[in-house]
């Protein structure tokens, strides 16, 4: 009897997961702050460079250039939408936050793709990587972003950088998963053809696997962009600038008009990016 009680006692002891994580984060903050600062600096530089490029000259210059790109990629209809939509944003004086948001999103997406696509390739070729990344990706995709806002804040301080980091964590799963899936879906016979004609690992990758996986990878990129956009408001909570800020402010001062205007900016930029980098239709 006493034995059973002992067991029950042990089972009832609370497992201190929260404390462990807390100590882990503390440990990392204390011992690796140099590393994090360096990383933060790189991200910060990226954001500022994109921001500088995007705010070069009059806003109309960027509007026209984006319109032309849309024309080239998808045709006249989208070009018209891009020009009118961005003009509206400029007109309601949301242009500056929009540029900040755009720069942050471009940075997040670039970082997510630079890490994500090679990871996806590795995952497709190496079973160990596949098995290790699977639970991590599940975790990253399903855990509420608010949970890692705090560690991001502690590692990287207030501002755009932790916002970008949180966004990358949130948006990196689709490019990894879809790159993996795309490569896995390349028919076995095509790979055999590659080997039979004497291709090496590298030729196999960039002449057979990546072209074959391209539609899937493009879908991953598109989803990555969309998920990054959905983080705009959340990252504003840890001090990131851009369109998320006025949305949050409108919430705290109950300013319906301001909230709607900023929200409209997010919608417009989301639609533009989705149509420009989406599939054919």
């Amino acid at each position: 009897m006493a034995f059973v009680e002992n067991i029950l006692g042990i089972l009832a002891t609370r497992i201190p997961i929260g404390n462990w994580i807390q100590s882990l984060v503390d440990f990392l903050v204390i011992n690796f702050s140099g590393l994090f600062n360096g990383f933060a600096e790189i991200i910060d530089n990226l954001i500022s460079s994109f921001q500088a490029v995007l705010s070069y000259g009059h806003p109309f210059l960027l509007i026209v250039i984006l319109g032309l790109i849309a024309w080239k990629l998808k045709g006249k209809g989208l070009a018209l939408f891009v020009v009118l939509g961005l003009y509206l944003v400029w007109n309601i004086e949301m242009w500056d936050p929009l540029v900040v948001t755009l720069a942050s999103i471009i940075t997040s997406v670039v970082v997510a793709l630079v890490i994500g696509i090679p990871t996806g390739i590795l995952k497709a070729h190496n079973r160990a990587v596949h098995i290790i990344t699977r639970p991590i990706l599940d975790f990253m995709q399903t855990i509420p972003p608010f949970v890692y806002l705090i560690p991001a804040l502690m590692f990287f301080g207030l501002g755009n950088v932790p916002g970008v980091i949180a966004t990358v964590i949130f948006a990196i799963a689709p490019p990894i998963r879809l790159t993996y899936l795309g490569i896995k879906q390349v028919p076995e016979e095509l790979k055999e053809a590659g080997i039979a004609f004497g291709s090496n690992w590298w030729e196999m990758l960039y002449k057979i696997e990546l072209p074959g996986a391209m539609p899937s990878i493009m879908m991953g990129i598109n989803q990555c962009i969309m998920l990054s956009l959905s983080m705009v408001v959340i990252s504003a909570m840890i001090g990131a600038g851009g369109l998320g800020k006025p949305v949050l402010r409108s919430l705290s001062v109950v300013d319906i008009g301001l909230g709607f205007e900023a929200g409209l900016g997010v919608v417009i930029i989301a639609m533009i990016l989705d149509r420009m980098f989406g599939s054919k239709n």
Binding site: E189, E192, A193, I195, A196, F197, I208, P211, G212
Partner: peptide
């Protein structure tokens, strides 16, 4: 493989792109 063997496949195995 490069120098000695050419291969033709049942389902053609052409690169669609």
């Amino acid at each position: 493989r490069k120098d000695k063997f050419g291969m033709v496949f049942q389902h053609f195995a052409l690169f669609p792109y």
